[in-house]
Design a protein around this nucleic acid. Structure first.
Length: 529
RNA sequence: UGGGGCGUGGUGCAAUGGCAGCACAUCAGCCUUUGGAGCUGAGUAUCUUGGUUCGAAUCCAGGCGCCCCAGCCA
């Protein structure tokens, strides 16, 4: 990756300005994944922005797992995320965890309590929600008749510092049941930004943590952890998606009150890709329901799925570069991604010949429509790298009418494919020798979903494309592919880009179609109806 | 509209007060031992109204549209 080739963007410009005015004299960013699932294409944009921004200034990148909710997180995902990110080509200087800072964070919380800026609230979750000054959950903003109402201050809001300190200590020691109390920042229950209406800092959870075990009974919320960890690590720029814009005032309020190092948060728009499911929850449902074969199913846009499908890190990075970095809400078409995949594969894939559907190839378009140049009775074509042949007749199955044989004559003078008399043929077709070719299984993929945005709605069954996978077991590939190993990539001439699947084994070749070639013929066909 | 964010060809991104450009997609042509790849050309855009200015996508004011927020999720 050549840094100079990447265009500048508003984040790079903002960071450059910070350096220029002396707000910081170095650059350090962080990747902030929550280890609760596998990485997908949507995460890649954020990862690459963090990586490139640091790289552009000779800065450092930390990989920090945001493990503040033990109910959802597992070590398995930590390893998978590191593996996927490394595969992409991202490099970091150290790996840290939000849980590394639980002790220090607790000290900071005590500081706020002592300053009278945080208190223990005994209200139930329902009471807190009701007193926030808004309509019940589930109500649409459009159904809101009047302006947002101020919240109601908790009856526990003015407890003494001593009592708060005592209660917090006992929360930490596990003296209270789960959900019975929280620590809240004392800010402003009438604030127009709901995030500032006394946000929760700690909640009681009797759940073992994948790294700290049973040590803690209270766990910090995102707002009371992320910015503090950024500050503790000397992160200069905390880059995140637009949904955190409204959290920035709180992010800054905490660091201001604490008097600690002030990281700057900058937001950008997340990636929306058509036909891609970004919701981890929903992808999990597909996996569990057996709609796909696993988290690495080649039809998924998880990094593992893309990798298995044969998509390269370079193609993914090219795509992200092309998408750019802005705050605009936008949708990028899957076709754009596929163009990047083809572009990279075209440059790097060795060409091979493979016949996927030996007979159908010929019969589909007979009698020939206009502009059809391939093999049909009376027409001469070139067998790629071999001879010019002329079709003389076809043999059909008397019962079905399907073509079972195509008879041709070859011109012995055209060895290699050139005619001594200089005559041209309009078409060259690929072939394999029936005597030498080896058999293979080929898996063809189409979009998994029938709708552009599979993340909306909950009726998954209605949006699944029933034809997203077609398995061909009667394919023949040229003998040189006998040595091909899982992950190897090829272009099957005139057909598409393919890679050897994980299921492949000696004597049992399995290929995935990564993406088809651009197909001008398909367009002509479409237009002709 | 309680607060916040965003509006440039079909899609995504540039232009940072000075000829609206790039990529993908589309269309036309050239070339081709992949109907692939490559090459050439074309069409299509500044949400709107007003203001400032010699000059506005850019600055200002109003309007319109879309998105985000009322978890003890991140």
């Amino acid at each position: 990756m050549d840094t100079e080739e990447r265009p500048t963007n508003f984040i790079i410009e903002a960071v450059a300005e910070d350096l220029k005015i002396g707000r910081f004299n170095y650059v350090r960013t962080r990747l902030p994944p929550e280890p609760n699932g596998y990485l997908h294409i949507g995460h890649v944009k954020a990862f690459l922005i963090d990586y490139y921004t640091a790289e552009a200034f000779g800065g450092e990148l930390y990989l920090r797992f945001d493990d503040t909710n033990p109910a959802k997180e597992e070590t398995e995902f930590v390893e998978a995320i590191e593996d996927d990110a490394r595969w992409l080509g991202i490099r970091w200087v150290k790996v840290t965890f939000a849980s590394d800072y639980f002790d220090r964070l607790y000290e900071w919380a005590i500081r706020l309590v002592k300053k009278g800026l945080a208190y223990v609230d005994d209200q139930t979750a329902e009471e807190m929600s009701a007193s926030r000054g808004t309509l019940p959950r589930g109500t649409k903003w459009s159904e809101t008749e009047s302006a947002l109402k101020p919240g109601i201050e908790s009856p526990y809001r003015n407890r003494s510092v001593e009592e708060n300190l005592d209660l917090l200590e006992r929360m930490k020691n596990g003296e209270f049941p789960e959900g019975s109390r929280v620590l809240r920042a004392k800010i402003d229950m009438a604030h127009p930004n709901l995030v500032m209406r006394d946000p929760v800092m700690y909640r009681i959870m009797r759940v073992p943590h994948h790294r700290t075990g049973d040590k803690w009974c209270i766990y910090p919320m995102y707002d009371w952890s992320h910015g503090q960890n950024d500050s503790m690590e000397g992160i200069t720029h905390s880059l995140c998606s637009n949904e955190y814009i409204i959290h920035r005032p709180l992010y800054e309020w905490f660091l201001e009150q604490l008097g600690e190092f002030k990281t700057r948060q900058i937001e950008f728009s997340r990636l929306n890709l058509t036909y891609a499911m970004m919701s981890k929850r929903k992808v999990r449902k597909l996996v569990e329901a057996g709609v796909v074969r696993g988290w690495d199913d080649p039809r998924l846009t998880t990094l593992r799925g893309l990798r298995r499908r044969g998509v390269t890190p370079e193609a993914i990075k090219d795509f992200i570069a092309l998408v750019g970095e802005t705050k605009n809400d936008s949708w990028v078409g899957m076709g754009q991604f596929e163009a990047c995949i083809r572009d990279d594969l075209n440059k790097h894939s060795p060409r091979r010949m493979a016949v996927l559907k030996p007979l159908k190839l010929v019969i589909d378009n007979y009698p020939p429509p206009p502009k059809y140049y391939r093999l049909y009775p009376g027409n001469e074509v070139r067998l790629r790298y071999a001879y010019l042949i002329t079709c003389t007749s076809i043999v059909r199955d008397p019962g079905t009418g399907a073509v079972t044989e195509v008879h041709c004559t070859y011109d012995p003078a055209t060895r290699g494919g050139d005619a001594p008399d200089g005559r041209k043929v309009k078409s060259t077709i690929h072939w394999v020798s029936a005597e030498h070719a080896i058999k293979a299984e080929v898996r063809l993929y189409e979009q998994l979903f029938t709708v552009e945005n599979p993340d909306v709605g909950d009726d998954l069954d209605s949006i699944i494309n029933p034809n997203s996978l077609e398995v061909l077991t009667n394919c023949f590939v040229e003998p040189s592919l006998v040595e091909a190993k899982p992950g190897d990539k090829f272009q099957f001439e005139r057909t598409g880009y393919f890679c050897v699947d994980l299921d492949s084994a000696p004597g049992k070749l399995v290929f995935n179609r990564t993406v088809t070639l651009r197909d001008t013929w398909a367009k002509i066909e479409q237009k002709q109806g």
